[in-house]
Nucleic acid binder design. Structure first.
Length: 152
DNA sequence: GCCAACGTTGGC
DNA sequence: GCCAACGTTGGC
C-alpha cells in the first residue's frame, strides 16, 4: 500500500464535493511527474490525503482512496474540454487519470502552517517551498502522523 | 494582487 | 542540447 496527497482548489472541487460524489474521476492532470505517480505508483486501496490549495487557509481536509488503476484521460481528446490536448490523441493517450473514492472528512482542517511546525513531518514533499505538484507521494509515517493529528 | 518557484516551449 | 521566454501554481 502506498500513500499520497492530492491538491484541489475548493472553489473548483472541495472535500464536500468529494463527499457528495462518493467516487470522482480525477481528470485534467497535465503534469508528467503526477501522471507517472498515477501510472507507476498508485494501486487500488491506496490512502490519499485530500488537500485544499489556493484558499485560506490551505491544508489537509480529509482522506480519500484510490478506486481505480490509471486509465486514459478522455478529456484530452475532447475539443470542448478545457483539458483538451491535441498531442494526446485517442490512439496514443499521453495523459492518464484515476478515480478517487471518499473516505472521510476531518472535523477541522489541518492547516499548512500547523503541518510545517511538526518536526515529525520534516521533509514531506508538500511542505517544501515551491512545490507545485498536484499529486505527491507521502511517507507512511507522515500519513499516519497526520491521521492522528486530526484526532486531537 | 504580488511574486517566487518551477515546468514547458521553441529558437538557435 | 542549451537557455530565454513564457505560463501556471499557490502561498502570502
Amino acid at each position: 500500500m502506498n500513500y499520497w496527497l492530492i491538491k484541489s482548489e475548493p472553489d473548483a472541487f472541495s472535500i464536500d464535493d468529494m463527499e457528495k460524489a462518493r467516487t470522482e474521476p480525477w481528470d485534467g492532470i497535465r503534469n508528467y511527474q503526477a501522471r507517472n505517480f498515477m501510472r507507476d505508483g498508485m494501486q487500488i486501496g491506496d490512502r490519499v490525503l485530500f488537500y485544499h490549495s489556493n484558499t485560506k487557509p490551505p491544508g489537509v481536509v480529509g482522506i480519500v482512496e484510490v478506486a481505480s488503476k490509471a486509465y486514459p484521460d478522455h478529456t484530452a481528446w475532447d475539443e470542448n474540454s478545457k483539458y483538451y490536448d491535441p498531442k494526446s490523441p485517442e490512439e496514443s493517450p499521453r495523459w492518464l487519470m484515476v478515480d478517487f473514492s471518499f473516505i472521510e472528512k476531518f472535523d477541522a482542517i489541518i492547516p499548512l502552517d500547523t503541518l510545517k511546525k511538526e518536526e515529525q513531518l520534516e521533509g514531506m514533499l508538500t511542505l517544501r517551498k515551491g512545490n507545485r505538484l498536484s499529486i505527491t507521494p507521502v511517507e507512511k509515517a507522515h500519513f499516519e502522523y497526520i491521521d492522528q493529528m486530526r484526532a486531537k
